[in-house]
Structure formats: C-alpha cells, structure tokens
Simulated assay, not measured.
Amino acid sequence: MRTLNTLITGAGGGMCRGINRRIAEAGHTVLCVDLDSERAEAAAAAVRGDGGKAFAFAADVTRADDVASLRREVLEQVGPVQAIVNAAGVLDRKMLLDHDAESFATVLGINLVGPFAVIREFAQDMIDANFGRIVNVSSIAGTTGYPYPSYAASKAGLSNLTRSLLMDFWGTGITVNSVCPGVVDTPMVIQEVRDQVPNKVPTGRIVEPEEIGALVAFLLSDDARSINGADLMIDGGATQIFRLFDPQHV
C-alpha cells in the first residue's frame, strides 16, 4: 500500500474529525493545517492519540505568502506532499441583501481561492513525482443552489475548479475529485436544518463525519486511480429530491 503525506486544510473543523481519522487509519501521514495553531495541534494530537502519524501547521490559505511558507515548513519537517484534501470552508448565513461585496468575497476567498492557492503551491511537487491525489470538499449546495448565495457560488466554483484542473494534470499521475456532502453532523449545522432531515433526505439520517472520511480515504487509494474529475455526492439522496424551500413556500 502506498503511504501518502496528506495535507488537510481546515483540519481542526468538525467534519475533519472523520477525515483525519480515516486517512490515518489507512496508514497515511496526516498534515493538519488550520488558521488557528491550537486547533491544528489538537487535530494532530487526536490522530496521534489513536495511533496515527500527524503533524500540525498553522496557515491562512487565503494568503499566498502563508501558503508558500506552509510548503517550505512541510518540506523541512515532513517532505513532499502526495495528497491534498481541501476541507477549509466557511458558511455565512446571509441572503443577497444582507451581503456586501466584502463579505461575499470573504466567503469565496476561503472556500474557493484558498483551495486554488494550495493546489497551485503544491502542484509542482506532485508533477515532479508523477503522482498525486487531490480531493476538494465541496457541497451539494454547489449543485442545487442554496439560500445563502456566497456559499453556493463558492462551492459551485470549487466543483468546477476540480473538473477544470484535469487539463493541467493530464498525464501526470495526479487525480482531482470533489466530494459533495449534504447535511453532516458538525457544530456548523443548526437545529432547524437537523429537524428537516427526515423529510428531505431519503435515508432519513444525517451524514456522519466518518462517512466523509471513508470516501476521501478511498479516493486517495490505488483502487480509485481511475476516478478523476468526479463530483461525488454523499448526501443520503437529498440532491435527487432537493427543494429549495419547504412545500408551503413553493
């Protein structure tokens, strides 16, 4: 089995509990990156506590100089990165008239420009090695639309960035895919959304972070080497029957 140095952005977040754990269980080294150094270290410590191998790094993925410094630190401490999981993200619960250009750009900066900056900075190392795995954590909101336009637009952009990068990585041994969660059991999900799950998700249940982690770990494996440019829904079937509003509002 190939062992990968796997960089995970937003590693201190709730969804990454499952992603970090499943990647470590697959035998990979987990490089936990977060804006908050304490959250990054806590995430790495949790992986090490379960017997895995992990390192912590602090970086703002929206800043090109931070991402460049991150690469230098990773090379010095661990070595080249073979896999990237772009999981850093933010949801700003603002509808159109609540947003201004600055708040809208902030969401796109974290959810879309950040993944672009990380991939661009680390791409050459993967190209030189003729191998790489990139997984972008998008959302079903990028496919269905969502009441909060900055989030939906950023995730739609991230999914399309995934597909567009196939041209850049043609013949390099690098695959690029997106996973698109529905409602996941994290602190970000408000109770009102949780209450709607039985009526809007055919499986009738919320998605667990470990399920996201299992899918990401699979995409890093040799068994997934022919999966490339895919936007994989992991939503209990919600996308298939999605309604933007409750029936009484239609």
Results as ranks from 00 to 15, higher is better:
238 A>Q: 11
241 I>F: 05
227 I>D: 05
222 D>K: 11
242 F>A: 13
224 A>W: 11
229 G>Q: 09
245 F>L: 00
221 S>V: 00
221 S>Y: 05
221 S>G: 01
243 R>D: 03
231 D>N: 12
242 F>Y: 14
217 A>F: 00
226 S>P: 07
228 N>T: 10
232 L>V: 05
242 F>S: 04
233 M>L: 09
235 D>M: 06
240 Q>T: 13
220 L>K: 09
230 A>T: 05
228 N>D: 08
233 M>H: 09
232 L>R: 07
244 L>N: 15
231 D>R: 08
243 R>E: 08
220 L>P: 00
244 L>W: 15
231 D>C: 12
220 L>I: 10
240 Q>H: 08
233 M>E: 02
216 V>A: 05
226 S>G: 10
239 T>S: 14
217 A>H: 04
219 L>V: 09
231 D>Q: 08
238 A>C: 14
229 G>M: 14
236 G>K: 10
235 D>A: 05
215 L>Q: 04
238 A>L: 01
223 D>T: 03
221 S>L: 05
236 G>Q: 03
244 L>H: 15
232 L>D: 00
215 L>K: 10
229 G>C: 10
236 G>S: 00
239 T>L: 08
219 L>N: 11
216 V>Q: 04
219 L>G: 13
243 R>T: 09
224 A>S: 14
224 A>R: 05
223 D>G: 03
223 D>C: 06
227 I>Q: 05
239 T>H: 15
223 D>L: 03
238 A>G: 12
227 I>F: 04
239 T>F: 14
225 R>I: 03
239 T>M: 15
225 R>T: 12
224 A>T: 10
242 F>N: 09
231 D>H: 08
233 M>R: 03
246 D>E: 06
232 L>E: 04
219 L>A: 06
239 T>W: 15
246 D>P: 10
243 R>Y: 00
218 F>T: 08
216 V>R: 09
233 M>C: 07
222 D>H: 13
223 D>Y: 02
234 I>K: 14
239 T>C: 08
216 V>N: 05
234 I>A: 03
228 N>Q: 06
216 V>H: 02
220 L>N: 02
233 M>Q: 09
215 L>C: 07
215 L>I: 07
224 A>Y: 05
220 L>Y: 12
217 A>W: 00
230 A>R: 02
215 L>Y: 09
218 F>R: 12
215 L>T: 00
240 Q>I: 06
243 R>L: 00
234 I>G: 10
227 I>Y: 07
215 L>M: 14
233 M>W: 11
240 Q>P: 08
230 A>I: 06
222 D>V: 02
219 L>D: 14
243 R>N: 07
233 M>T: 04
244 L>P: 15
227 I>A: 03
217 A>V: 00
231 D>K: 01
243 R>I: 01
217 A>D: 00
216 V>P: 13
241 I>V: 15
222 D>M: 13
232 L>H: 00
223 D>I: 01
222 D>L: 08
224 A>L: 11
226 S>D: 13
228 N>V: 07
227 I>N: 03
231 D>A: 13
228 N>W: 09
227 I>K: 02
230 A>K: 07
243 R>H: 03
242 F>M: 09
237 G>I: 11
226 S>E: 14
241 I>R: 06
242 F>C: 05
231 D>T: 11
